[in-house]
Simulated scan of single mutants.
Amino acid sequence: MPFVHSDAVNVHFRTDAADGPTLLLAHGFLMDESMFDPIRKVLAHTDINVVAWDARGHGRTGYGADPRFDYWDLATDGLRVLDALGIEHAIVGGVSQGGYAALRMALLAPERVTGLALLDTDADACTRADETYYENFFDEWCGTGALRPLAEDLAPRLIGGADTRIWHTWINRWLARDRTAIRPAAECLIGRDSIHGRLGEITVPALVLRGEHDHSSTVDKSTRVADGLPGARAVRTVAGAGHGCALTHPEQVGAALAALVTACTPYAVEPVTVVGI
């Protein structure tokens, strides 16, 4: 079980150890690196080396002595994962909060990031309305009331799609964890800074993709990100998907990721052809 030490935190990660270009992926809030298992299966017949890590406070990664951190720290964690694997360059990407980390990786180490995959994410800080919503939500999540109704209401919105089996897999994981342990990660989410004004510094090829029914990463937010990135084209939309399209629609998302890797790599990656995106 590989870990890398980053800023007093032991960060858990997993790699396919494939021989081709590296695709480093960061997961969404309340998830862990296993959310990319469906993507790994789709890309298994290519030579893409899929690497993913658990963010602080998620999966097998804790907080260290000081639980305070921000998405710049998570970006540094991602770079330390690449260091541990001896990987100098990678296409980096993420879902939701993972996209916040991926963007910051591209700003911290532009010489190492050869492409950017932004899935159901944005580049702005929370609005005051967002802050109020999250503060109330996490007070309830970390409180003493019944957690199951809250988790069952969250899963369709956080994950989306129509496969309730996926929802219940994650609901059961949430219920099995210490519900209060997510608080420092929630404070990071709420207090994040806007980097929209710096998007123009990121010039590598970029994929901006969202689920059709994602009410968090809206069309306007995603378009604003794509417009700010010199290397991005129009926003790609996954039909029928929600906020967790990497989980629910891995064939479509995997095909888009493979195309990005091909665009960022001097040698060809076997294409993944899927309709509906």
Rank of each mutant, 00 (worst) to 15 (best):
N49Y: 05
P110Y: 12
G59Y: 04
Y71D: 10
R183N: 04
G64D: 07
L24V: 05
V95W: 04
A52T: 08
K41M: 02
G244F: 07
T144E: 09
T218D: 04
T114K: 05
R183M: 06
G143C: 08
V269F: 10
A239T: 14
L147M: 02
V272R: 08
A146K: 13
L209W: 11
R198Q: 14
G94D: 01
H215P: 14
G86L: 04
N49W: 00
S96P: 05
C142L: 03
T15F: 12
I159S: 00
E212C: 08
S34D: 01
L24R: 09
R198N: 14
W174E: 08
E88L: 05
T164L: 06
L25M: 06
A232E: 02
N49Q: 10
N136V: 06
T180F: 03
A65Q: 13
L199E: 06
Q252E: 12
G94C: 03
G94M: 09
I190H: 15
T262C: 15
E33L: 06
V81S: 06
L82S: 07
A17E: 08
D73F: 02
E152S: 09
H27W: 08
I171Q: 05
L175Y: 09
R173Y: 13
L25F: 02
M31L: 10
S216Y: 00
A206R: 08
H5L: 15
V42D: 05
T248N: 00
